[in-house]
Amino acid sequence: MAKRIDVTDLNVYYGAFKAVEGVTMTIEPRSVTAFIGPSGCGKSTFLRTLNRMHEVIAGGRVEGKVMLDDQDLYAPRMDPVAVRRTVGMVFQRPNPFPTMSIYDNVAAGLRLNGVKNKKTLDGIVESSLQGANLWAEVKDRLNKPGAGLSGGQQQRLCIARAIAVQPQVLLMDEPCSALDPISTLAIEDLVGELKNEFTIVIVTHNMQQAARVSDRTAFFNLRATGEPGRLVEIADTTKIFNNPSEQATEDYISGRFG
């Protein structure tokens, strides 16, 4: 059920401002692709174009092409709501719905899709929480508020919520940046398991994390402040970290700047 993403010559704008320029890349199914790069280089912005979440911000639009297998995500009649049901997202800060219980948080997406059968919901809630390595910790308090969990548990709850709707692709926007090292480790282990089922794209500021979890790494950068961000190179993670093709990548991963 994982799908491949093909991006061709994508520009992203917020109003008149060009945030990202000329990105072309292929994201392989059943693998983890990491986006690294300095702040403001457009990696999160670009990530959001993969499920059209950039359109939530006023003035956000793109030029270019994003293909999910053979579907054009920006075809004129493509519904962004349908895109987001296929391409799920986990955010930087855990954002469980505070007014909902743990159970209802995981079931939220299913209910939006019209699933009402209690048995079906129970089954998917359990398998999703198990898939997010959270089941053992919360199975006795499914009716307690999701906001009562620790930060790391909340983030895994958000992952469970995202995978409950069976997306093809899972986008993760710096999912560990608000978490402590132990919770980070739990999420990283989880990413390693999830890639057997999903196409995963993860934005991270932490280069060790990119090296640990990803199969392919894309390095984004900008020429100067105010210039649009661009993709410098994308390659196997081992190649990016050991033998990058571009000098800029070499400089960044060796800590010479950024």
Binding site: N51, V81, R84, G88, N95, P96, F97, G109, L112, R161
Partner: peptide, 23 residues
């Protein structure tokens, strides 16, 4: 963050309002 969470699950505008803004 809550509104984006709902939208990222594939909520329509009204569903987003129902799951986040109203509660």
């Amino acid at each position: 963050a809550h509104k984006e969470g709902a939208l990222a699950l594939g909520a329509t505008h009204w569903e987003m309002i129902r799951t986040t803004v109203l509660p």
